[in-house]
Design a protein around this nucleic acid. Structure first.
Lengths: 233, 233
DNA sequence: TAGCGTTGTAAGCGTGTGCTTACACAAGGG
DNA sequence: CCCTTGTGTAAGCACACGCTTACAACGCTA
């Protein structure tokens, strides 16, 4: 899609105008579209699909709400586009064994840009009635399917879905219920606990101990008091 | 207020009229109230708090929607009353070590009357914006707090909340996402898997089946809710 | 019978929603 | 200049929501 950046910025004051007020802003459909998309991602993530209103989104984007319908047609289509932003690529480009940990860390990151946004939208829109139509539900199925392929045991799919359910629950507890201390606990600690426990369900996962040849660029082991209860003493 | 206790029942024909049509139904405030309460529980459970409308509830109860406001004052108050039906008693009357398994089996039961309804309301209303106001959230906190008391380790609360999160996620997968095979899998199998994995996080729990190290696979042999293994064999 | 409080009902109020319509600017070309 | 095309805006439509109000039907007591 239109991932590129336009060089219209020369006119813009680098967006430092802070508000995004409709003052001197030049007419740039591309920029406007992108701005709406960004605002929509944020609002959907904050309040869920149903609770988010197009007026909110328009206000946050600093545009007239009619533009949303000119550019996207409907609220649903807007959601679809938000969820489709580069999406799916991560899940299919990550080796299955690492997918769970990657996804878990994604959940735990929270605030890490568009990717975390999509996840938040998913979490917040799950409960809704018919709610998030297909688009949102698809994200979950994507992950579940990939995870399910992990185990070849007879009930491998079930085990994978149980893991998926844990992921979902942890995300919910963190981003919507915000229950302490889980909400602000160290991601590494959580990750360790979960992977340790899950080692009994899905032995294929890396487990919680010292990673065998799995290098993640994150290097997020900033945790000071890292007990890291080894899976193998 | 008006905690009225009228012994009008003598007049009622036990409400066996089955349809609920507004025909020959006699005037009985008690029955009407109860009928609304039942309908509200069902609708809230099916669609979540926000998506449920008082018109739906009134229709299902077979009464005029104005009666809902006469008897309960507001939609929120109605929810409060629905959630308060005997609630809380189970959680405080169950020994902590068994609470998790009990709750898990409650989640897995689904369809088991009012208790499962309350849980479904909780699950379906979590994502909503401000959504389920206090009442619903309280149910979750209740369980979490009780579970948190299980472990005395420094991060015992965190571990307990992780378990709680799993519970939540499994419930979500089952009752709202309805993903197969989890949605229709054998409760005993799920219970075994979860308790086995969780044994590493919360050793205080009964655990699943035989104690030992890497024993798994045989799985579902552990009886239904019957085994009742002591915390310390 | 009339009176009166209780139970039920129809109609509507105010607001917020997704979405539409009619129109005001800006540029480019004849 | 006018005309067309693309971009932005104000006003509003139709509807669903939670909630209210005015009023009818009933059951009881006097």
């Amino acid at each position: 899609m239109d991932g590129g950046e336009y060089t219209r910025d020369q006119h813009r004051s680098a967006g430092a105008a802070a508000g995004g007020e409709p003052q001197g802003r030049p007419r740039d459909a591309r920029e406007t579209r992108a701005r709406i998309l960004r605002a929509a991602g944020a609002v959907f993530a904050e309040r869920g699909y149903e609770a988010a209103t197009v007026r909110d989104i328009a206000a946050r984007a600093g545009v007239n709400q009619a533009l949303i319908f000119r550019y996207f047609g409907s609220k649903q289509a807007l959601l679809t586009e938000v969820m489709a932003q580069d999406g799916k690529e991560q899940v299919s480009s990550t080796p299955p064994e690492l997918l769970f940990e990657t996804a878990l860390r994604g959940v735990l990151a929270e605030g890490g840009g568009a990717d975390a946004d999509r996840l938040a939208v998913y979490l917040r829109s799950i409960g809704g009635a018919d709610a998030a139509p297909e688009t949102v539900r698809a994200l979950g199925e994507e992950y579940a399917a990939a995870l399910a392929a992990l185990s070849e045991a007879e009930d491998g799919t079930l085990r994978a879905q149980l893991a998926m359910a844990w992921l979902l629950g942890i995300g919910l507890m963190r981003v919507v219920v915000r229950q302490e201390p889980l909400a602000t606990a160290d991601p590494d600690a959580i990750c360790t606990h979960v992977l340790t426990a899950l080692d009994r369900l899905l032995p294929v996962l890396p487990g919680a101990g010292p990673r065998p040849g799995a290098e993640r660029g994150a290097g997020a082991d900033s945790g000071a008091g890292e007990e890291r209860p080894g899976v193998r003493p």
